[in-house]
Amino acid sequence: MNQAEIRKLIPAVRVAINAKHRKFSNPKGPEGRLTMLRKTVTELVKLERVELNYQRGDEARGYAERLIAMAIKHGDRHIPTMEMANYWLTEKQLVHKLFKVLAVRYKDHTESYTKLHKAPNIYPGFYRERVVLELKGNPFPPLEKKNSSHNWIHNILLEEAHQDYIRKKLKEGERSN
């Protein structure tokens, strides 16, 4: 009974999250870790697409998702949500963006709000796995193209050929009649 109510208080995060957080050993301790993650989340909200190390990107993704989910659920007239936004976004013009742009953009989404792409491994390199973390619906060129599209040149040509064939058949039918 109680559990169900508690569950309803917090919006579900739509990405897989590790059972245990990453510690990110930092000279300033857990506080330094959070400062670092705040920086990443702010960067993500500001630029909408950032390249990071995998561990950091994956960890920051959960926090960003949670922040957007809270903004969508409670809006900007909810004190705890506003406090969260104030904490996570170090540049305050982005608090407006969170509530006026991102919350509106993702209002009807049924999936996660961010996407994590694996960046190419450059040889020779340090072999730290790199990822590209982006907000969905950003204005930049897409990173991964769709598997197939009717806009592809061969599909357009095939479609035209098909139309030609049909026209030809129709004419022949008219002549024979």
Binding site: L47, Q93, K100
Partner: peptide
């Protein structure tokens, strides 16, 4: 191209509240 766009976008937005796509 993304970096060029981001730079232009951030310059346009500046320190004003970001209220539009």
């Amino acid at each position: 191209i993304t970096q060029a766009m981001q730079e232009a976008m951030v310059t346009m937005q500046g320190l004003n509240p970001v209220e539009y796509e």
